[in-house]
Design a protein around this nucleic acid. Structure first.
Lengths: 232, 232
DNA sequence: CGGACTATTGAGACTCCTCAACTAACGTGG
DNA sequence: CCACGTTAGTTGAGGAGTCTCAATAGTCCG
């Protein structure tokens, strides 16, 4: 990280670029830094609870988090994983829609919404970056809908791994870090822990993906992998 | 409709209000009208195709549309239904992410993205309304994820009906209009047409919902209905 | 090294999908 | 206006897949 303040990452709106880019300029970062507070959190710490009063939004500077919602039936549903440069803290009617919890140790920028909205109103360029970011999250959510809509567990897990693939050349992309637990991943995918476990086993047996430990995977057969992702 | 131009509707960001409100002022509507073109379309007409060059965004003035995506496997997935005051035309890398098609006869406002982005940059208040609207769509998408994640068909259909519930008092809310076909609804819910058919039949047998024709439903037992929606 | 939590593996039940036949609704053209 | 063809929806029987429940193995942390 070059900047010394909050940064965002997304595909720009409208522009022809295909790439995910860093959105904020140095100026915008330092401007945001004025109203932002840096927060350090150990793993498994609640950042905020659903339905509590939404006074701040957050930007991830380091680490991984999950956003989940407790359903009336008692079940819990993971709706998103949050990585570096992600924005979170979505509210409705002044209350958070889900609970945010750290998975690894994280560093966050906490920004009061009222200060942020004032700043956005005064700085159209900055606001535009936030618009791009929210559109980016909307795309991510639609992608999740596609994934969860699939019937087969193996295909869903394959798509999930693709989601976690780092950017870069083929060698870099083949090594995948899996920061979350199996059970969180399962929950995100709309599967049970057991189904994910069996699916990963199947992927290994097919020689498509190798798992070394629980938090690292390597794609061994890119062609087969892509066939699974696209659904045969 | 009082305004004579495009209008948007969403929950505002940050504010304490719980309600969905009309976002744009008269001034903003007439300002948008300058760069917008009114388009009338009969039912079942493609507005744009996925992967085609994204030059315009659209706002629904009247009617219902669906947004879907053709998956590599050959299957088709409905990702959203679009109603009055909805904004659509989400793109990535300059290309539309899904295909938009009218369900009923529709009236749309077509707005070139380059003109819109220019206008947004120049008018922070207007841009803020668009930010609210996109956040609103993000919430809708997250809600769909929750719905699709459920396992039981009856519960999913119940949630879907709740989604279509009009605002107002109890009497108004109990009468539900279903503009889309069973098969589109099924697709949106991640079910087959047959499963939806059986689920509606079950709802009828349980005396929870009555169906008169294929495009109208009435909630008969609100308490049971809510139990189904929340998942027992 | 022990304890608690997470993950793997197995057997059975349940639900939805697939396939197939039939019925209803819609729009077209005679 | 009606007959017809096409599309959309209903209903039934069978099979595939995941969920549930249960027991075992592995991992992390004190």
């Amino acid at each position: 990280m070059i900047g010394s303040g909050p940064s965002l990452r997304a595909s720009p709106i409208g522009a022809g670029s295909d790439d995910v880019v860093r959105l904020l300029s140095q100026r915008q970062q330092s401007q945001l830094a004025v109203i932002a507070t840096e927060v350090h959190l150990p793993p498994a710490r609640i950042v905020y609870r659903e339905d509590s009063c939404a006074e701040c939004v957050f930007i991830v500077a380091r680490g991984t988090l999950k956003a989940f919602r407790d359903l009336p039936s008692g079940k819990r549903r993971v709706l998103a994983f949050l990585f570096r440069d992600d924005l979170f803290g979505l509210a409705e009617g002044g209350h958070y829609l889900h609970t945010a919890q750290s998975i690894s140790a994280v560093t966050l920028y906490r920004i009061p919404v009222h200060a942020l909205t004032r700043m956005l109103q005064a700085d159209p360029e900055l606001q535009f970056q936030f618009l791009c970011k929210v559109a980016h999250e909307l795309r991510a959510s639609l992608r999740q809908t596609i994934i969860v809509g699939r019937r087969d567990a193996v295909g869903r897990v394959a798509m999930f791994l693709q989601l976690l693939q780092p950017a870069g050349d083929r060698a870099r992309r083949s090594r995948i870090e899996i920061p979350m637990s199996r059970s969180d991943a399962a929950n995100y995918l709309g599967l049970t822990l057991e189904a994910v476990s069996r699916a990963t086993r199947t992927l290994e047996r097919m020689g498509v993906v190798g798992f070394t430990g629980r938090h690292a995977a390597q794609i061994l057969d890119t062609s087969k992998f892509h066939k699974l992702v696209t659904g045969l």
